[in-house]
Design a protein around this nucleic acid. Structure first.
Length: 437
DNA sequence: AAACAGACCAACCGCAACTAT
DNA sequence: GATAGTTGCGGTTGGTCTGTT
């Protein structure tokens, strides 16, 4: 049920309005200075607390219309509103200011919140800056109730896409303090080749660090990894689909590690040696280099430039070849053989010399394969979610913005949740939590 | 129908950062 | 530089609603 903001909870608006009018002795008109002075000299005003009445709202709106936002402590002086400046500011920003978006969060917004929370922690105001029309209080309330429910249900706080990012960040930071694991030459080369091919393919598809590959890129890569035809599809992916849509089942989980393509930066596409990675600043400065159009359109890289087609085909062939090499090198079982056995989870990877069916080991294997091949990225930018039907206006944060890669995953869900035994099904669970919880 | 628990939401509080004097 | 005032932020609380028993 939606309560209208500002509506009194206990009594009717009419009653409250009348009460307020009596209480204040007027309807929001400004006082003459002498009246104001008289009041100040009189008994100290007792500021009101509790829910706002419609009369109070009207007075505040009127004040802002006349004087603009800010100088909140003057509101009480100028209007006689028996509220402290703090309360006025809060009421305005959370309920009265224009362009506020009311109602429940869309799935895209929910995913964006999860991503932002993974990046920023409990920085509600900064998160709100990425969600036009939403307030920090709204996001905070949403997150707190949701987190509580999920923790009680024993479910991971973050969706798998976000957990992966956290794990990658964690692993990268770990790798900075420990030597890279020894890989067999064949495995290392194959992993490097595949990663490079993926990077090149992503660049060819128009992704850059300022326009990072969306989360569903991994889905495209997953398809590419399982089907030769899908390789071409990956290079001409369909328009962006809702992040909350199900992942492709085959290779779903392991394919997520191919999100390493997120590291791809703007490098020239050319034949010959695969371009080296150049990782730019973290992507929490979303607003600094926004996608050219709306996110939904921006992620539809199907509209690749004509002169890119040749590169795409080259890359497709190259990617196909590299994937074959990797499959041989690390012996990936086919998804078809695995799906029924482990409940539709992901592929089981085997490293040279031993089968590993443990999911976290499986993750580690891929990290081991992929991370050492990275060109020491400074950061691990998380692809901003498809800013859902946003105007595209995102806030510019000042230079005090913290590098998200330096922010530890919040204790609420970060490290612990990434250790949880989530599989493909958890994607759906996460998306459907509104029913579960 | 009543009691209860949980969810949701608005608002308050304390603190820190910033700004003006 | 010190101080007071203002603003912004995050944590927390308390009231109401809703679904369940």
């Amino acid at each position: 049920m939606e309560r209208s903001p500002g509506a009194p909870l206990a009594s009717s608006p009419e009653e409250e309005e009348e009460k307020a009018a009596v209480e204040f002795g007027h309807h929001g008109e400004e006082e003459a200075p002498d009246q104001e002075q008289q009041r100040e000299e009189a008994a100290p005003v007792v500021l009101k607390k509790g829910p706002w009445t419609t009369a109070e709202d009207a007075m505040l709106v009127d004040h802002v219309r006349r004087h603009g936002e800010g100088n909140w402590n003057a509101v009480q002086r100028l209007t006689g509103l028996l509220r402290c400046g703090k309360s006025c500011r809060l009421r305005w920003t959370n309920h009265l200011r224009p362009n506020l978006k009311k109602g429940s969060f869309s799935p895209d917004e929910e995913l964006l919140i999860a991503q932002l929370h993974a990046q920023l922690g409990n920085k509600w105001a900064r998160m709100a800056a990425h969600l036009p029309g939403r307030t920090d209080n709204e996001i905070k309330n949403y997150w707190n109730t949701r987190t509580k429910r999920r923790q009680r249900a024993g479910l991971p706080v973050y969706p798998p896409e976000v957990q992966l990012h956290l794990a990658l960040t964690k692993r990268r930071r770990y790798a900075e303090f420990s030597p890279a694991p020894e890989l067999s030459p064949g495995t290392a080369a194959a992993a490097a080749n595949v990663q490079a091919a993926l990077n090149a393919a992503a660049v060819s598809a128009g992704y850059t660090s300022s326009r990072p590959a969306p989360l569903d890129l991994a889905r495209q890569l997953a398809a590419a990894a399982t089907s030769q035809a899908a390789v071409h599809q990956f290079l001409s992916p369909p328009p962006f689909s809702a992040p909350s849509s199900p992942w492709p089942k085959p290779f779903a989980r392991n394919a997520q590690y191919f999100q390493l393509a997120h590291f791809v930066a703007r490098v020239p596409v050319h034949a010959g040696p695969v371009p080296r990675l150049r990782v730019e600043l973290p992507s929490n400065q979303f607003g600094q280099a926004p996608p050219p159009a709306s996110a939904a359109a921006g992620f539809g890289v199907g509209a690749a430039l004509p002169d890119q087609h040749q590169h795409q085909h080259q890359n497709a062939a190259s990617l196909d070849k590299m994937l074959q090499e990797l499959h041989e090198a690390i012996k990936v079982e086919t998804p078809a053989a695995l799906a029924p056995a482990n409940g539709g989870g992901g592929a089981v990877l085997e490293r040279h010399g031993g089968a590993r069916d443990n999911k976290s080991d499986d993750m580690d294997t891929l990290f081991d394969l992929m991370i050492p091949t990275l060109n020491a990225p400074e950061t691990v930018p998380l692809a901003p979610a498809a800013a859902p039907n946003h105007s595209g206006s995102t806030s510019q944060h000042s230079s005090d913005d913290q590098d998200p890669s330096t922010i530890d995953p919040p204790a609420a869900g970060g490290a612990s949740s990434s250790d949880q035994d989530w599989g493909f099904d958890s994607v759906c669970q996460w998306s459907n939590m509104s029913r579960i919880c």
